[in-house]
Design a protein around this nucleic acid. Sequence first.
DNA 1: GATAAAAACCCCCTTTAGGGGATACCAGAG
DNA 2: CTCTGGTATCCCCTAAAGGGGGTTTTTATC
Lengths: 203, 203
Amino acid sequence: MITVAIVDDHKILTDGLQRLIEGSGIAKVVGVAHNAADCRKFINFWKPDVLLLDVGLPDISGVDFCKELKERIPELNVLALTTHNEYSVVRQMLENGASGYLIKNAMTEEVLAGIQAVAGGEAFLCHEIDILMKRPKETHIWLSQREREMLKLVAEGLTNGEIADRIFLSPETIKSYRKNLLLKLGAKNTAVLVRMAIEKKLI
Amino acid sequence: MITVAIVDDHKILTDGLQRLIEGSGIAKVVGVAHNAADCRKFINFWKPDVLLLDVGLPDISGVDFCKELKERIPELNVLALTTHNEYSVVRQMLENGASGYLIKNAMTEEVLAGIQAVAGGEAFLCHEIDILMKRPKETHIWLSQREREMLKLVAEGLTNGEIADRIFLSPETIKSYRKNLLLKLGAKNTAVLVRMAIEKKLI
DNA sequence: GATAAAAACCCCCTTTAGGGGATACCAGAG
DNA sequence: CTCTGGTATCCCCTAAAGGGGGTTTTTATC
């Protein structure tokens, strides 16, 4: 019997999910948490084969939390469970140690398939995400570290001069990065840039 | 026995919710849809006492769909079920005919309490939303129709001149509205304005 | 009938952003 | 060893945004 722990702030979902998993007969739920803090407390007690981890937790970004957990418990199998079907989020989660990725509008059977696969050490992507990741690279927007950093600061409302002071670069450099971001994302101006950055979950 | 229909694109959630409701003994699920189109097709066949309606549907805005349903079937009791705990969303849903409002991280018992209340013709807000709506008006941001329209256009990346052409006003008027929006939301510039507009779900 | 918003308009002036270039260094892939 | 991508820099010039005022009319509320 596979042991599963669930971390998600939506109590209605965790409740339903628990019934669903236990009703399946292939796994049992050994723990549930609604935030990262509780998960940290109990993870060593639960010792689950699979951790179903929501990326939209209230107290920490899912990407950071996944990284933290994998550093502390390298043998833990993390199965991401989110509403985001954005390339950038999936990629960041997988890069930070997630073994699988499910979106919340996936089929119920996919949850069980995901749990079985991940518990067995395999990777697992739900159908929709699998399709998404197989699309040609050109259709995805991917930014370098610096560009993402720049985008965050722009979205915080800093001017080129302020960003320059903050990260010790020339204001002209910031200007160039900014122009490049507009080009890469196909944005007309800062307003659209910020909107796209949020929509595509780049920041 | 109360009859309930569920409209939510997250299949995992609808599945779990169905088990949860039917396990409670107070209500039974007579229909499930994962988008607005299917809901439109079956709503007259289901004739539910309560419609659990997700605000984040893929094919239409929850506010618009709620309005549409209440116009077609005025006696329908809509119980909104969403992830948004923003004043503006709750207010718009209630103004457009929702009888109750639940957030997805509410307690399981609140779902059942909400269904019972709404089926009995009463209004229902889950605890967190109730607290939110009772907060003094000053702590909420509320924009006029025109201001919201303006905010949408700004977030689309239109310049003052372009907005002026679009809605047949003077560019100077747009400028004034824009200044006022920055003031009202406490935003430093357009970047922050757009970010706040999205975060607070004002657009 | 007063009061208070919302809606629409106008001027001046400074700062910032955006469009168009160009150059240089470094690291890793082929 | 070349070639690409990331990083960092600079210049010119125009367009747009932002900060500071101000006025009028309509419409809803008390």
